[in-house]
Design a protein around this nucleic acid. Structure first.
Length: 494
RNA sequence: GGCCCCGUCGUCUAGCGGUUAGGACAUCAGGUUUUCAUCCUGAAGAUCGCGGGUUCGAUUCCCGCCGGGGUCACCA
């Protein structure tokens, strides 16, 4: 059996899409699983949509997800270059080859004419708009002359009349197409760049790609590619088309309105790569068991094309992603949690820098805070809100504060009692256990209801209804801060 | 519109002729707890899109319909 070689071939036209990362992950895992090679190739053949620096960011984010490639940008390989804009003469040579074999032809039609043609086709209600082949049978001399004159032109594939083309898809099975429905695809653009269709076929062949795993959106153009393989006299790779990603319940592609869609965006939001990857694994694949927590190594072990879903869309359940992430955060050791958070805050977040907080409040204090919110943090970007009251006085909502006790007098009584208690406790006794004990004594003494008293205190001290255990929080705070906040709350309700 | 793909709890899925149709997320209830989170236990939730076949028997195979999606560029 020939070596398994897979590839991912993204276009540097913007931020790398999270769906692209899923497809990359499958290609990566399949190659690793079969002791093959995984190739990264940059498909930058669209000069108009090309975005400066996008290729560099692409490479960066793939590495940030913890993945790598055996051949491609930065690492090189036996089939260099791996950037299509540096392979222009290769594509041209192949396009010319097709012309010589009679499977392609020059076309001098202008954009304007093509637009007009389509306009008319639509009017006459033709079932599908295809190039009308005006340039198919130009005289050889005529073509020669126009080429010499430097007239703008493209090279088109000459699609056969009525031929059945069968796509053998490893995931979907055999799919039949008729060449009648296929347009005379442009192969080489007037700027000398190839279209995707030419470039992908030529490069996949030259780079000896054995398996093409790509998104389902490519299925309709696969017959064009098969035609090209045939005319070049090449053997086909194995195809597998993966379900597209959609927003939950929306039957739509991922939308920015629902959150991030770029691979980078999720890292910025504070998702861990291992959680992201675990989540991505299940977007179109399922082991058929009940195991849902997968490391990348386990995934490589269990991945198989047979288990890829036959489905048109895989649902990108952001809720479930959050669950995965909180699971992975919870399972970080305290050290790792601190280190990962710090690293993240330095790299992505401009609003919450761990190092700034450490400088201001000491690392010891910061670590204690972290310990309290560790299992409550779902994504790193929640850190600021979740810990705000440890670092600055909260804005307390008066109504929220009052509704926890019977009435205004009761609230004042509670606040007063605990101000008295806490002012008496000396610095050396200011710890969680003692505060807990003494606070409960006051409860008994004054006949306060536990819930009323402690909720009132919690809100007065943190401004929030949901926090870590009250005396954990109190024990961490300085005595004078506690007293100040209780006094503030008291004057708020007075 | 043409071509092509898909259709199982609220959501995502497992299933590859005979199952009490399994799991996860979400939801709800109970336990732990001063709140939240975690953790544990449990509940509810699917006439397997609809209608025909094939079969002793269809969620599973075939056909039609309906619904959703993808694609029809000198974009990938």
């Amino acid at each position: 059996m020939p070596q398994v070689r897979t590839r991912m071939a993204p276009s540097p036209t913007g931020e790398y899409h999270i769906g692209g990362m899923r497809t990359l992950l499958y290609n990566y895992a399949f190659a690793r699983k079969n002791n093959g090679k995984f190739i990264l190739r940059i498909e930058d053949t669209d000069r108009e949509r090309h975005v400066e620096g996008a290729a560099e960011r692409l490479v960066r984010v793939i590495k940030d997800y913890g993945l790598n490639w055996d051949e491609g940008p930065e690492v090189g390989g036996p089939f260099e270059p791996y950037i299509q804009s540096q392979r222009l003469d290769i594509y041209k040579k192949h396009a010319l080859d097709l012309i010589n074999k009679g499977h392609a032809y020059y076309c001098f039609c202008t954009e304007e004419r093509l637009e007009k043609m389509r306009e008319e086709q639509r009017k006459t209600g033709l079932p599908t708009t295809k190039y009308d082949r005006q340039c198919l049978n130009l005289e050889k001399d005529d073509v020669e002359k126009r080429l010499n004159n430097g007239e703008p032109h493209v090279i088109r594939l000459k699609v056969p009349e009525n031929e059945e083309i069968i796509v053998k898809d490893l995931i979907l099975g055999e799919i039949k197409f008729n060449s009648q429905d296929i347009d005379d695809q442009v192969l080489l653009k007037s700027d000398g760049f190839p279209t995707y269709h030419l470039a992908v076929v030529v490069d996949d062949r030259l780079m000896e790609i054995s398996h093409v795993l790509r998104g389902l959106e490519w299925l309709p153009s696969t017959p064009k590619h098969i035609l090209l393989y045939k005319y070049f006299g090449w053997e086909l790779p194995v195809y597998g088309h993966l379900p597209l990603l959609k927003e939950v319940g929306e039957n739509k592609k991922l939308s920015k309105r629902m959150g991030s869609v770029s691979a980078q965006g999720f890292l910025e939001d504070g998702y861990l790569p291992e959680a992201l990857l675990n989540f991505l694994m299940f977007l179109g694949w399922n082991p058929g068991t009940e195991k849902e927590i997968y490391s990348i190594e386990e995934f490589i072990q269990d991945f198989s094309l047979e288990k890829v879903q036959i489905s048109d869309m895989a649902s990108f359940d952001r809720m479930k992603l959050k669950w995965y992430n909180s699971y992975y955060i919870r399972n970080l050791s305290e050290d790792d949690f601190y280190n990962r958070l710090t690293e993240w805050s330095e790299k992505y977040n401009y609003d919450f820098k761990v190092n700034d907080y450490i400088r201001k409040y000491t690392k010891e204090y910061f670590l204690k805070v972290l310990k309290l919110i560790h299992e409550r943090l779902q994504v790193f970007s929640d850190i600021k809100e979740l810990t705000s009251y440890f670092f600055k006085d909260p804005v307390v909502n008066k109504d929220m504060l009052l509704e926890k006790s019977k009435d205004r007098e009761a609230a004042k009584d509670i606040l007063n009692s605990y101000i008295n208690l806490y002012s008496e406790i000396i610095e050396s006794d200011w710890n969680k256990e003692n505060l807990d004990k003494r606070s409960h004594e006051v409860l008994l003494l004054k006949g306060f209801k536990t819930k009323e008293a402690f909720m009132t205190l919690r809100i007065a001290l943190t401004g929030m209804e949901a926090t870590p255990p009250l005396f954990d929080v109190l024990g961490l705070m300085k005595k004078e801060i506690v007293l100040k906040r209780l006094e503030d709350a008291l004057s708020l309700v007075s």
